[in-house]
Design a protein around this nucleic acid. Structure first.
Length: 795
RNA sequence: GGGCCCGUAGUUGAGUGGCUAAAACGCCUGUCUUACACACAGGAGAUCCGGAGUUCGAUUCUCCGCGGGCCCACCA
């Protein structure tokens, strides 16, 4: 017999049990079933599984469990995105910067395994139905092979190239980065009005406003607006930079903002993106302003000084010689590296690129071929693609990552690639595949590693066996569903669609399921620094895993940002308790019952069966559309209100009575509806449903059972209306008792129901329920012309 | 400046071209009725942001405001 609900005990019991029996193994049962392949996110192992990740994986797991029960052969793999700055930063912090390349990598691996272990424990506790036999690490040899092979293929297709180009650069990390890794922050800076010598200008001085005086030595031109009357006559002349005394041309360009500063701009290579555009547009020379650690270069006496401190020094020197006209405060937005939160510079640098420009339509077409849930989220990707300006710089001057698998000729730039069977390679230390280049030059091994998104953008290919197992690949690729947080649509989704489509000609997934960000009760994205952070383990401790999982579905419609409210969790927990107690009732009510369907059901039985089958239909449709909110609220409402509040009350008199056909009808119906409801709830509340299912119904796991089918013959609107009328009558009886200060189980002497003839006819069929549920000795019916049924009651 | 999303009871939030616009939390009044007080029964509470238009009819569709969020562009 069921005791009190103890979620802790149930969680421990089933987690241990499930681990032994590999319930979620892909291909375990029947290879012929249709494949449902989830291209799961490989999270970066930071050690904690935060509430945002919880939401993400709950969505995935709802989908996985639902489809498994529906009869799909579900492949729910789990990868780990191991490489990258954050690990290096942590390892640097712990061991310092003096480790050798190999030693450093080893420490990174150790750290990664520690963190993965901790997250895995939490994922298992959350009951995510991952098939751990399909676990992969981006640090594995096979993964390196696949990534390097993908780059070789793209190089052969001329989609990868090596070039010197201005790139976003993090001087702190000493590496190239991309726009997607940049974030912005507002700050106050100083706008300096500097005096340039200019013979053609008034008093021989041209005033230029700049926030970056430290780049003065890299100034290659001065720009004005072509329609600016003040400076029209200066175009074509030259000006001389202060301090460095370099003569630079004065050029007209319509992109100059006449209103800003003095309407004159100095172009430095490279202060910001506009400088890059102007430099190329007007074929200006390039002066490399700083080195890769952000120390000045080509700046004479200032060489070697770090960029952040030299600014002060140069302004002082300018002021000392009277070259600063004035200074103003200015609100500015600066770009920071998202990993280290330090300012980003633009640096001219020899890097590897993946071509993005020219493939925009291909990516948009691929995105259009997929079903997005919700639909409008596709637009985020389209907008990002439309805003692309440069190709993707994929090389990073770091250590912990997949080596870029190329050697290049130091004389002519020719690129040598390794053979497939030599992969994975590390050109930083391996011998080049060819001794000498045709031009006679020797090959230099690339020392850079790949941007982490190069690794993670082939997950659907890798899991499908690409490029090593063609048969497997054809069976699995493309993946069925890609779960995707809104914040990484422009990285993970975009790069995956781009790369996989170019590599195979086939878009990598059929469906994209978007989850929003998890916010604290203040409506802001959850973060430790804001103090609006709630950890999954605290939620589990105060409520339960099943309650936390239900919260994920309850917290809003798919794709929307989800605010964490304790009230949702606590409601979910109350619901579990309700379900538990209802099950206790059913268990006791059905003691000794054989379980065969009786020949005749009462109208109230037909009523709940009709409601139940309607629910099955709705829930199935909702889950096919990934509308978890709609599904969970419908199930909860059905169980709580239709099943518990109404049906259980309707049948108590039969259940407590002696063994008759009517009692068996109630027993069969109770079991049928509860068993089905547990199945519908199983994806959301795997622990409690498993416990109840195993106690009451079957030895087989509920998670391996078949999803309920909606049986049309049970849908009966007529019966639903009659019983709805019955419940109104019962409600009137309760109201009467409440207003007369009577206990609900008090027996009334008589009730007289007045209603139109047709309604009376129907109500006569439930006369027994009116008497027994309402506890009334005698019920009589009186016809009336029209209107809602009325009830006259006497004590 | 551009794109997308959103504005519904005190709070949170579904939803719909037309039935008394869900529900949860909170609030008020009763009740420990043999599954459940993590409950039950009953109740109060919404000019569905403002304005105009389309329509027989709009909270729902269109446009214009106002307010909020996200993304992008600009930031010398």
């Amino acid at each position: 017999m069921l005791g009190k609900l103890d979620c802790r005990a149930i969680e421990a019991k089933w987690q241990a049990h499930w681990e032994k029996c590999e319930l979620y193994a892909f291909d375990a049962k029947d290879r012929k079933k249709p494949v449902y392949f989830i291209d799961t996110p490989p999270p970066f192992p930071t050690g904690e599984f935060h509430t945002g990740s919880t939401l993400n994986w709950c969505y995935i797991d709802f989908a996985a469990r639902f489809h498994r029960m529906l009869g799909y052969n579900v492949l729910f793999p789990q990868g780990w995105d191991c490489h990258g700055f954050p690990t290096e930063i942590k390892v640097e912090k712990k061991y310092g910067r003096d480790l050798s390349r190999d030693e450093f990598r080893k420490r990174c691996l150790e750290w990664t395994h520690d963190m993965v272990g901790s997250i895995k424990t939490q994922m298992k506790q959350m009951a995510f139905s991952i098939d751990w036999r399909h676990e992969f690490y981006t640090i594995d040899n096979d993964y390196h092979k696949a990534v390097q092979y993908s780059l070789i293929k793209m190089l052969e297709a001329k989609q990868v190239y090596h070039a010197k180009h201005p790139v976003l650069w993090c001087p702190t990390c000493g590496s190239a980065i991309t726009k997607a890794e940049a974030e912005e922050t507002p700050r106050e800076t100083t706008l300096n009005y500097l005096k340039f010598k200019c013979g053609a200008a008034q008093n021989g001085v041209l005033l230029i406003a700049t926030t970056r005086p430290e780049l003065l030595h890299a100034c290659v031109a001065v720009f004005v607006h072509p329609a600016d009357e003040r400076y029209k006559k200066l175009v074509g002349k030259t000006a001389v930079t202060p301090l460095f005394n370099k003569e630079v041309p004065i050029i007209a360009d319509a992109d100059v903002d006449k209103e800003f500063g003095t309407g004159v701009v100095m172009v430095c290579t490279f202060g910001d993106k506009t400088d890059v555009v102007w430099t190329y547009r007007h074929k200006l020379s390039v002066i490399e302003a700083m080195d890769e650690r952000g120390r000045l270069k080509n700046a004479g006496a200032y060489d070697g000084m770090p960029i952040h401190s030299v600014k002060v020094k140069i302004v002082e020197d300018l002021q000392a010689t009277g070259l600063v006209e004035k200074q103003e405060k200015l609100q500015q937005t600066v770009k920071l590296h998202d990993r280290c939160k330090k300012p980003i510079e633009l640096l001219n640098s020899l890097q590897w690129f993946i071509k993005l420009k020219g493939f925009e339509d291909k990516v948009k077409d691929a995105a259009s071929s997929m079903d997005w849930y919700p639909e409008h989220m596709r637009q985020l990707l389209v907008d990002w693609v439309d805003g692309l300006e440069w190709d993707w710089c994929i090389s990073r001057q770091r250590v912990f990552g997949i080596p870029i698998p190329f050697w290049y000729c130091e004389k002519c730039g020719d690129v040598a690639t390794p053979s497939m069977d030599s992969l994975p390679v590390d050109p930083a230390k391996d011998k080049p595949p060819k001794e000498k280049c045709r031009c006679g030059g020797s090959y230099v091994g690339e020392k850079s590693i790949c941007d982490g998104w190069v690794d993670s953008s082939i997950t659907p290919l890798f899991v499908a066996g690409w490029p090593f197992d063609q048969q497997k690949f054809e069976r699995l690729y493309p993946s069925t569903m890609r779960p995707q947080g809104t914040d990484i649509i422009r990285t993970w989704a975009f790069y995956t669609i781009h790369r996989c489509t170019l590599l195979t000609g086939i878009p990598p997934f059929k469906q994209v399921l978007i989850n929003g960000m998890v916010c604290g009760e203040d409506g802001k994205k959850m973060s430790k620094s804001l103090g609006n952070y709630v950890e999954a383990k605290d939620v589990i401790a105060r409520a339960s895993v099943d309650a936390l999982r239900q919260w994920a579905a309850l917290s809003g419609s798919t794709g929307k940002d989800n605010i964490f409210y304790w009230k949702d969790v606590l409601y979910a927990q109350s619901f579990l308790n309700k379900l538990w107690n209802a099950s206790k009732f059913v268990e006791k009510a059905c003691e000794g019952f054989k379980g065969r369907k009786p020949a005749k059901l009462r109208l109230t039985d037909e009523w709940i069966l009709s409601r139940y089958n309607r629910l099955v239909k709705k829930t199935t449709e909702d889950l096919r559309k990934y509308d978890f909110y709609s599904a969970i609220t419908a199930i909860q409402s059905f169980v709580w209100h239709d099943f518990c509040d109404n049906y259980l009350e309707d049948v108590k008199y039969r259940v407590y009575g002696e063994g008759t056909a009517d009692k068996e009808a109630a027993q069969w119906t109770l079991q049928t509806v509860l068993e089905g409801s547990l199945k519908l709830l199983a994806p959301f509340a795997p622990y409690v449903t498993e416990e109840l299912y195993s106690a009451l119904f079957a030895k087989e796991s509920v998670h391996c059972s078949d999803w309920p089918r909606s049986e049309e013959e049970y849908l009966n609107e007529g019966v639903e209306n009659i019983v709805a009328a019955l419940h109104e009558v019962i409600s009137a009886v309760r109201k009467f008792k409440a207003s007369n200060a009577l206990a609900l189980n008090e027996e009334l002497s008589s009730a007289s129901v007045t209603a139109p003839e047709t309604v009376l006819k129907e109500l006569a069929d439930v006369e027994e329920e009116i008497r027994r549920v309402g506890r009334i000795k005698q019920v009589s019916f009186k016809p009336k012309e029209a209107g809602a049924p009325e009830v006259q009651l006497s004590i």
